[in-house]
Design a protein around this nucleic acid. Structure first.
Length: 656
RNA sequence: GCCCCCUUAGCUCAGACGGCAGAGCACAGCCAUGGUAAGGCUGGGGUCGUCGGUUCGAUUCCGACAGGGGGCUCCA
């Protein structure tokens, strides 16, 4: 049998019966901390018999190994909870990104508090110290139901197997038509589970319970709300520590904190949740983002539109918004017998612009662009800084094109999106192609056509993509663009959708070259998604240190002492005249303190000017992110560099 | 909306078995003129989120509400 070790090397070991024997032969001291093996088809317990011709050992310090480790830690946590709260019911406990959770219903409807986490951790530590083996057993469905006689959630999972509709994902829980698998550790703890698990509890080297949360059973808000405990587990104390530090780094980048520290925006309670105000610096950054975007759109063949914030109910009746999204819309206002709603989307109004006169094929594709502020009622629990607000500004466009133009227009659009996002320094894009959901309208053939056009465009663009079955909007399939930020987090930004409904509902047409009236296709698209959310993403990606062209202050000038303030003013006015945003930090406090303040403000360039500079026409340049400043830099050569840094590079728009 | 947690000065936080509160930063004034991440002194600033209850007395204990945070559900 050829055994593949975690490092990828392989060794021939004769007469093997299980993964455990391979470990005994190749890693007798357990240095590799092998937790499971892959038999060519799936990941299984180390103790499993060999079935295939392949045996690949999986160490705890690997993605697969950590999944096993975390899943096992979830079991130990459930075991601890059942010890501490006799009679508790437990539901499901999977591994997730960076950790695991387990859902419980405590006796008497009790809830976990934060203080309970330490108690549970202590009990878990005792279980781990006992080095209890995880032992797999297989049973019939009937035996499984008897084993979990007093565990209603487990029984529901087992019973669910009999109704085909509930088959989704239950195999993960250790149930299939042939029976159930369970794992025991300790005398009393048994859990329904597919496995695999680590051989015994001592393989859990480092874990921590993170927080308490509520979660609905089966994710359904009409069903029981369970108590969820989140935790994390790692192959070593050092790896856990690194993870905790990563969380701290993410916390430092939190745009809500940076927004306050950098005096960019806040959410006054007097205005209401999810409704930000932008302070001068934040408003300036917004303006710079919007200005760059608008120029790019104009260069890219878009025309501007501008539409009001509210409209009569009639408009949203025609568009279907009142039928489909009334609950998500702000409530109506009555005026002179008419009912007005704040708009939840810009599209109906752009359609009215299209419809204002007869359109010719010569006008297509017609691309209307607007920074349109829309209002959506979001439930209070979902608001999250600028990333989820109730009043948001979309960089919104609606493109009307002939059916023949659709594929190429979408492909052109994808290239436009990628180049615009790249101009903000973002990269690592991935697309999701979302197909028809259950709750939707339209003919199958139309959905197929539109989905095919989206896929065609994706293939042409070369952006990697995954399918998201059933995730489309009710009226349209869509492509969502995700990106990775500087610390590896994924954010959904752009969306583009081929609308099948609105052109029909508003009876749109154009006269084609053969003098026949035809229905145009309509594409909805937003690239930032919302300006507010994109602002948040930029702040977190750059940890507040925005690129110079987006920085509210680009250059701070610090005269060494009062005698140098005249020269500082000369330099300042020279740079301002070139379009740089400059502040002068006058000599009212020590130089070090003034430099520190500008550093904390994340100003890209700090210029220190003293007697020497005044005589020689030079500046000292202290760059953001650099430890050692440059001295005696010729002002003209600094200007040459500055101009490049503060000038946004126009988008290269490929109009083909 | 639901579950858990939090709410003391503009910000970050300390504090008292229940006897009307404190630091650092920030802000203002004065002094200091300092060559690359915090100079010194002085001062202003809080009905301890709001309302109610218990109590001789509540910022502290209890309850409700509001706002915020972490999740769940939702996200056109």
């Amino acid at each position: 049998m050829l055994v593949v070790l975690p490092d990828g090397s392989s060794r021939e070991v004769p007469d093997l019966q299980s993964g455990a024997e391979a470990v005994a032969a190749l890693d007798p001291k357990g240095r590799l901390s092998v937790v499971a093996f892959h038999n060519g088809r799936e990941l299984v317990d180390l103790s499993s018999p060999l079935t295939g011709s392949e045996l690949r050992l999986v160490a705890s310090a690997s993605d697969e190994g950590r999944e096993v480790l975390r899943h096992s830690t979830a079991h130990v946590m459930a075991q601890a909870v059942l010890i501490l709260w006799p009679g508790a019911k437990f539901a499901i406990g999977p591994f997730i990104q960076d950790g695991f959770y387990y859902d419980f219903a405590l006796p008497g409807g009790a809830h976990f508090s934060d203080d309970d986490l330490a108690k549970i951790e202590a009990t878990m530590a005792q279980i781990i110290a006992k080095d209890q083996p995880f032992i797999r057993e297989e049973h019939s469905i009937a035996e499984g139901l008897a084993l979990f006689a007093d565990q209603p959630y487990k029984r529901e999972i087992i019973e669910g197997v009999q109704s085909a509709s509930a088959l989704d994902g239950t195999e993960l829980e250790g149930v299939d038509e042939s029976g159930v698998s369970v794992y025991r550790n300790g005398d009393s703890f048994v859990d329904l589970c597919r496995g695999p698990h680590v051989p015994s509890t001592s393989y859990i080297k480092a874990f921590k319970l993170m927080r308490v949360a509520g979660a609905y059973w089966r994710g359904d808000e009409k069903r029981d709300q369970l108590q969820r405990l989140y935790g994390t587990a790692w192959e070593s104390k050092a790896a856990l520590k690194e993870y905790i530090e990563r969380l701290a780094e993410a916390e430092k980048r939190d745009h809500r904190k940076l927004g306050l520290d950098l005096d960019m925006f806040h959410f006054p309670p007097e205005i209401g949740g999810g409704l930000p105000v932008f302070h001068p610096k934040g408003a300036l950054v917004r303006h710079l983002m919007e200005d760059f975007s608008m120029k790019s759109h104009l260069a890219g063949g878009y025309q501007l539109a501008w539409t009001p914030h509210i409209a009569k109910s009639t408009l949203f009746e025609i568009s279907g918004h009142l039928q489909w999204y009334k609950d998500g819309m702000y409530p109506p206002m009555e005026m002179e017998g008419a009912t007005y709603y704040p708009k939840p989307m810009n599209c109906p109004m752009h359609i009215l612009i299209y419809k204002s006169h007869q359109r010719s094929y010569r006008e297509l594709p017609m691309r209307l662009f607007e920074f349109g502020t829309v209002y959506r009622f979001e439930r209070s629990g979902v608001l999250h800084g600028l990333a989820r607000v109730r009043g948001l500004t979309q960089d919104d466009s609606h493109i009307f094109c002939s059916p023949a133009q659709l594929g190429d227009e979408l492909s052109r659009l994808l290239r436009f999106i990628i180049s615009l996002l790249s101009a903000f320094g973002l990269q690592d894009f991935e697309a999701e192609l979302a197909t028809r959901p259950d709750k939707s309208v339209g003919a199958d053939a139309e959905w197929d056509d539109a989905t095919a056009a989206l896929e065609y465009a994706l293939k042409l663009s070369g952006v990697s993509y995954v399918m998201a079955e059933g995730e489309g909007a009710f009226y349209a399939p869509k492509i969502d663009i995700h990106l990775k930020d500087a610390i590896g987090r994924r954010w959904q930004v752009s969306t583009l959708q081929v609308d099948l409904q609105l052109p029909q509902l508003f009876d749109l047409d154009f006269v084609d070259s053969d003098n026949v009236r035809k229905r145009p296709y309509m594409i909805h698209r937003a690239l930032f998604g919302s300006v507010e959310r994109f602002f948040a993403i930029l702040l977190e990606h750059y940890a507040g240190a925005l690129p110079a062209w987006l920085s509210p202050v680009q250059v701070a000038i610090a005269p060494v002492k009062e005698d140098n303030e005249g020269y500082a003013a000369q330099v300042a006015s020279r740079l301002s005249a070139l379009g740089a945003r400059v502040v002068t930090a006058g000599a009212s406090e020590p130089l070090g303190a003034r430099i520190r303040k500008q550093k904390l403000e994340k100003v890209p360039f700090i210029l220190v000017v003293g007697d020497r500079d005044q005589e020689a026409g030079t500046v000292g340049v202290n760059r953001r992110g650099s430890q050692k400043p440059e001295v005696d830099v010729n002002l003209e050569s600094f200007i040459a560099e500055l101009i490049i840094e503060i000038t946004p590079k126009p988008l290269e728009v490929d109009l083909a």
